[in-house]
Amino acid sequence: MSKRAYNFNAGPAALPLEVLERAQEELVEYQGIGMSVMEISHRSAEYEQLNAETQELLADLLNIPAGYKTLFLQGGASTQFAMIPLNFLTSEKVANYVITGSWGKKALKESKLIGETRVVAQPEKFSHVPDLSELQLDNSSAYLHITSNETIEGIQFQQFPNIGDIPLIADMSSDILCKPIDVSKFGLIYAGAQKNLGPSGVTLVIVKEDLLENTPDHIPSMLRYDTHIKANSLYNTPPVYSVYMVNLVLKWLKEKGGLDQVEKFNQEKTKLIYDVIDESQGFYVGTVEKQDRSIMNIPFRLKDEALEKEFLKQTQENGFVGLKGHRSVGGMRASTYNAVPYESCKALSEFMIDFQKRNG
């Protein structure tokens, strides 16, 4: 097999090699049925079994309690930005948003189109999570929306706010399944698959059923959560292959020992890179306060843009992919999702040390 790149892309992102090899084996024929999984009907017994098994794997890994439904939808997190206020933001309610970066701002923009929306917390600079311990929300609140991990800025919630009976809604697109979470704290969790779950094309939604009792009647069928719950995510043709790949990724996570072990692994591999930044005496500069650093996205800068360009040029020449920071913030960013191997992070840390020796 040819040498694989050190893939630090932010999304679509690295997939486990074992998953890719399993998918390769089954590409032409799925489980002896004479067809690829991409060719079978979504109404077939084979796909219904795959759909159900994938839901069960998620329930097991995340310890999802009774009273929640798991959906596989389309349109990415960007469609969820609108679906959430459409389903939950009625005329007498207010949507609350905590803004910690670019994706929170995009979610806020969509909510403002639909109903009364307010920002309840936003730091001046996207370098930390605001303190929400004193957050008080009144009875007019439809929900509180957070982005658990900002992919671009590299800020991650280490704990979640306690807001009583008001539903907490989280965009977990870039850190779902990177560590255990208490699903019962949330009214709804959503995540585009293309970072930690599988390939692009499917969006995971975990929703508390009793939140859907008052869904407005005027919402189009495809934008209603209850439509997809009643049809068990089969209301229209689902992204069959993407769900199949999610299934394989979830099995891989179980084989790794579940989310406790996955979190430990993520901490170990990202520490390799953070240690280089912290010990570089200012040659590398992290952009996030230490207590809110992400174990999924590591943004950093060098002292000038010319040196950053040289760094990126040399990383590309040495087999590293995806280290250029988002165009909106510049710099560098290493996305270290679950499927990024320890060896890739070790190789990057060693390259960073060597680059500093040659250019410091």
Rank of each mutant, 00 (worst) to 15 (best):
R118Q: 13
N214H: 15
M332T: 07
A77D: 15
A121K: 00
F265L: 08
Y190A: 00
V285M: 09
A193H: 03
N297D: 14
P220D: 14
N9P: 00
E18F: 01
E150G: 02
P199M: 04
S280C: 01
A5N: 11
L15F: 12
W252H: 15
A191T: 06
D226M: 07
S141E: 07
A347Y: 10
N9I: 00
T79I: 08
L135R: 03
M296Q: 14
R43E: 13
K109G: 13
S280Q: 03
G282V: 02
G325L: 02
G330V: 02
P239M: 03
Y244M: 00
N236G: 09
I181N: 10
A339H: 04
G330Y: 06
L248D: 13
L27I: 14
A95P: 06
G257P: 01
V98F: 11
V37S: 08
I64Q: 15
S140T: 15
T287H: 07
V94A: 07
V205Y: 11
Y274N: 10
T117I: 00
A306Q: 14
M222K: 15
Q194C: 05
I114A: 10
M35F: 12
F72L: 04
Y284V: 00
L57V: 02
H145M: 11
Y68C: 02
L132G: 09
Y274I: 00
L17N: 14
G325D: 13
P238A: 05
S200N: 13
G331C: 03
Y342G: 03
L50A: 06
Q356N: 01
Q356P: 00
L312S: 09
K309M: 05
K112N: 14
G76M: 00
I169N: 05
G34M: 00
E268Y: 08
A45D: 15
E134N: 13
N266T: 06
Q356S: 04
I33L: 06
D354L: 05
N232V: 02
A306V: 11
N139E: 15
L312F: 09
S200K: 03
E255A: 04
F283Q: 03
F351N: 02
I33K: 07
S133E: 13
G187R: 07
K269C: 05
I163N: 09
I219W: 12
M222V: 12
V285Y: 11
I146W: 11
